[in-house]
Amino acid sequence: MVAILETKNLGITFGTHQAVQDVSFSVEKNEFKSIIGPNGAGKTTLFNLLSGQLKPTKGEIYLKGQQITGSSVVERTRLGIGRSFQITNVFPNLTVLENVRLAVQSQAKLRYQAFTHYRSYQKFEEKALHWLHVALLDHKENTLAINLAHGEKRKLEMAMLLALEPELLLLDEPTAGMSLEDVPAILQVIKKIKEEGDKTILLIEHKMDMIMDLSDRIMVLFNGKLLAEGTPREIMDNELVQSAYLGGLYDEFTSQS
């Protein structure tokens, strides 16, 4: 049992507002863990702390036993953290293939350390095409990213993330803003990644059926605090969770999907 990621009393304060408070948890290698909680609970902020976009005002973060609390985004990417954003993040004026190729060439450089290592252009393109295939974006390679449908943009983002070959994936609401017919496709991509079994995944999502289906364990965040943690079953049965959060909202979500 190796914890790939561990936080101790992690917290961040914006002015007087404690967006994340005293959050301690660990994620095991190849575990699929989801984070749920109402809007404004601090989920995205927690991801920002893990990926290095924000520096905590309190607490520590360890990746594979190594303290990374003060490390930059680049260093964390190098160490194997890959992150998707709640707001779609692709390069609009590059083609789909160029977007992924950028990630592929970055990954090659990170892994094999620059100068001595020369990789041909074609190799990069082949790899990029492979990831586009995994993300179910075949035949879109020459489209400008700006011209993709929203769901396709999220798939492209996923392909870029995969191209970095991270050990730990942070997925922030990958289905946000997607039309209902696009959701199964992205779900399929996530399932495919999970089934390959060599990734640790942290997922923020609102769609409860999806969470129940995919997760090994679930964490509930509420007002910046970790309210509960357990298997999907335990979370469903947890009275605290039910009264504080799931009660009203869960019905809402299930009736929605």
């Binding site: 680049v74 990417t77 190098r78 990630a103 970055s106 870029m160």
Partner: peptide
């Protein structure tokens, strides 16, 4: 975003 891909 380029930085978040690990590029210096």
């Amino acid at each position: 975003m380029v930085q978040s891909l690990g590029i210096n």
